[in-house]
Design a protein around this nucleic acid. Structure first.
Lengths: 102, 102
DNA sequence: TTTATATATCGAGATATTTCGATTTATGGA
DNA sequence: TCCATAAATCGAAATATCTCGATATATAAA
């Protein structure tokens, strides 16, 4: 749990939005036939949804990954990103115990 | 609850430290005789503890205040800052419901 | 009213982040 | 092998943050 990286990753509305969208696969276009059964969302779909450039999204997903909020898995030419719920919970726990009195 | 301002305010290790220190008055030098009974810690003590310039700390406390994490109260020439526990809890609630799935 | 002290505000240089388009790398298909 | 597509990396301009010292403001004390 790198609090520094985690908070920096959250310090951007688009990145927070992406984390929210990733809660539900149906926020993105339906998976391609060759992707049925695979978990996560590929960069292109996130880019389309966010309306930002490919390089920006790739960068953002890298930051979210380094912060531990998402996991990446490569399948062929695509990289699928999905939330890392365990780490997200761990982060919330950590902020809480840092911020909360007692 | 301005999530934007709140996260930005937390996106700095010194400001997070200050919030932690403010949990316990004894992290700072004892209050002056003329301040006994008054709540909070004055800027000078925070500055001394943090080892940053006076203007930096004044700026930081302003950011923490705008984010709702602290309350300021002026007594004479001193400004006393203290945590706003209600708002801190509200923030934690908000991050949690934004980040957590379900 | 002058002086001293505490804090806030201003202006600026250094550093970091944002975001892009261009390029590179990885992979799969013709 | 050559081409197409997806994603990552690079380089850069615009903007924001960090942090300071200097100055301004507010208050109290002499």
């Amino acid at each position: 749990m790198d609090m520094e990286k985690s908070i920096a990753a959250l310090n951007n509305p688009a990145r927070r939005k992406i984390l929210e969208w990733l809660k539900d696969r149906s926020n993105f276009p339906p998976a391609l036939p060759e992707h049925t059964g695979l978990d996560g969302v590929c960069v292109g779909y996130i880019q389309e949804k966010a309306g930002l450039s490919q390089s920006t999204i790739s960068n953002y997903m890298g930051l979210l990954k380094q912060a531990g909020f998402v996991k990446a898995e490569r399948h062929g030419q695509w990289t699928f990103y999905r939330r890392d719920e365990k780490n997200i919970q761990a982060f919330l726990q950590a902020v809480q115990s840092e911020l909360l009195k007692d």
